[in-house]
Design a protein around this nucleic acid. Structure first.
Lengths: 137, 137
DNA sequence: ATGAGTGCAAAGTATTTGCAACTGG
DNA sequence: CCAGTTGCAAATACTTTGCACTCAT
């Protein structure tokens, strides 16, 4: 499990039940878009407002402990910040997985061809996940 | 230069001056967001509607000859489809450059770790472009 | 107690749609 | 000629803001 309260405190955000729930749902599901978060939180807080979700997600993104992941052809999803990693997206079912790969080769390759000073790399792989591969058989 | 009419015809889109202008602006500028396109086209077509831009860009994206590029922290931009390539984005001035790098290493690396069947990779490097590096000196 | 957070309603933006008039092939 | 395209206005969708009330510290 995750210590959401501690995490929130570390980032100078007051610990409210709504915020704790956001962190925990993200921890549990890995990646969620605004709407999924909203629907999930509605279960616990029947009167929660979409505005609350937006305000909190934005606040957490600013504090850099949430991360917005932009994915081709879909809405952005949010994830708890963690070690740098790339994403695998199933173009059939939409499932998103994290994957750690070594990207240093890429940076080297850039260094040769461009004088951009690289600070960060975002990589999204699209493809078919295992279970969708099996379904189609 | 580019033969926009031919291109449009190939993709079964009627050749209208507005569409030709969209293709040409994208050819000229490489990457533009909806608003930049709109403002640019307003110069030639003072009564063009934003709806026309949206409809055409969407049509061209569906025909796969435009490509939507999603970039962290900014609006999507569109580009003419071409050989697979990655993007360099300057986090200071927003400039976007194309860059061709060999991504086969990545696919191999995925193959080892996951049974996702990879179909595509989107890579966005963020950093500081040369001219912004010089400015800050 | 008090500054920050919540929910609601309203305001902003962004994007899509319906439709009459127009136009490319 | 006529199916497809345009521009406009209206409709939707998405996101932010202002404010009175509540709550975490």
């Amino acid at each position: 499990m995750i210590n959401s309260s501690l995490l929130l405190k570390e980032y100078n955000l007051k610990v409210t039940p709504q915020r704790v729930a956001i962190v925990e749902e993200l921890y549990k599901h890995g990646h969620m878009n605004i709407d999924e978060l909203y629907k999930k939180l509605l279960e616990k807080f029947p009167s929660i407002s979409l505005a609350t979700i937006y305000k909190n997600v934005n606040a957490m993104v600013e504090k850099i402990f949430l991360n917005e992941v932009k994915i081709p052809e879909t809405k952005s999803v949010y994830e708890l910040a963690k070690e740098a990693h790339s994403h695998l997206v199933c173009s059939s079912c939409g499932k998103i997985e994290d994957i750690k790969i070594d990207t240093s080769v890429l940076n080297d390759s850039i260094k040769e061809k461009s004088s951009f000073q690289i600070e960060n790399v975002d990589i999204v792989f699209s493809g078919i996940c295992t279970s969708c591969q099996n379904k189609s058989k």
